[in-house]
């Protein structure tokens, strides 16, 4: 199929003014839009546009975990399935899980298992589905960002949302939120996810080459970004359930 476009190694990922190929500065996020409650069948859902990424997340549950032998008698399972649509990438991807998707599914499940109040629902599973409809690097971060919103939308009890972002190194410089070219031709990429209120890191991966100091600077950029992303997630949820006012007569009825 279509070849990966060949950038010369000399292509300047960062120009002399610190501008990246897409015009961003090194510490800028791509534009992000988040919408909660976008699907009808799912218990909770969210849609995220993040640069040229388009990701849909849905949550079903808690529901009885099947097969039976996987059930945990003391708490809920948290099972996330990350999947890329065949048309989401330049070279069509065969449908079905590949090893990369399986790995991302696993680390994402583990991140969410940290914040969901699992003991409230023994023997069940909270099923999270992330579908990447269009990819431009950073899909796992976009997916986690969407899935957190979908979990809250589904009424799953959690300690907090999870916000996720990546930073890395391009042309020797630390940069936030790499796009596809930067990820392909850069020197390092480090996706992470945090519990925003406490700063606990629940997902962390890195490939490439970073000194300890570079790592610190990359994490600082990501942490700053996740604060902003967290605000966007909360805003999406509030917009979904904008409560203008309640009928006088019935106000007292809306109580536990």
């Amino acid at each position: 199929m279509e070849d990966i476009e060949h950038f010369e190694k000399e292509i300047r990922l960062v120009d002399e003014n610190g501008r990246r190929i897409d015009g961003r500065s090194l510490d800028a996020l791509r534009p992000i839009k988040i919408e909660a409650g976008v699907l009808k069948r799912a218990d909770g859902s969210a849609y995220v546009e993040w640069g040229d990424n388009r990701v849909l997340a849905a949550v079903y549950g808690p529901r009885e975990a099947h097969p039976r032998h996987l059930q945990d008698p003391t708490r809920a399972l948290v099972q996330c399935r990350y999947n890329m649509a065949p048309f989401s990438v330049s070279d069509r991807k065969r449908p079905g899980p590949d090893r990369r998707s399986v790995e991302i599914s696993k680390v994402t499940s583990e991140a969410f298992a940290n914040v969901v109040f699992r003991e409230q629902f023994p023997r069940t599973s909270v099923d999270i589905f992330i579908e990447v409809l269009q990819a431009d690097a950073g899909t796992r971060c976009a997916g986690i960002t969407a899935a957190s919103v979908a979990l809250a939308d589904a009424g799953i009890p959690m300690r907090d949302l999870i916000a996720s972002c990546a930073s890395g190194k391009i042309a020797g410089q630390i940069a936030l939120d790499l796009n596809k070219e930067e990820d392909n031709f850069g020197d390092a990429d480090c996706p992470m996810a945090v519990v925003p209120r406490t700063g606990e890191i629940v997902l962390l991966q890195m490939d490439g080459h970073l000194t300890e100091d570079e790592f610190d600077r990359a994490m600082k950029l990501s942490m700053g970004a996740t604060s902003k992303i967290y605000e966007m997630q909360k805003d999406a949820l509030r917009r979904r359930y904008a409560v203008t006012a309640l009928d006088e007569d019935d106000a007292s009825e809306v109580s536990p």
Partner: peptide, 24 residues
């Protein structure tokens, strides 16, 4: 979808389907 050579998202009532065409 930009990464597809052709695409369409269809909503028929509440049924929602996305179709992508890749041409190589």
């Amino acid at each position: 979808i930009k990464t597809a050579e052709g695409s369409a998202r269809v909503r028929l009532g509440n049924t929602d389907v996305l179709v992508g065409v890749k041409i190589g």
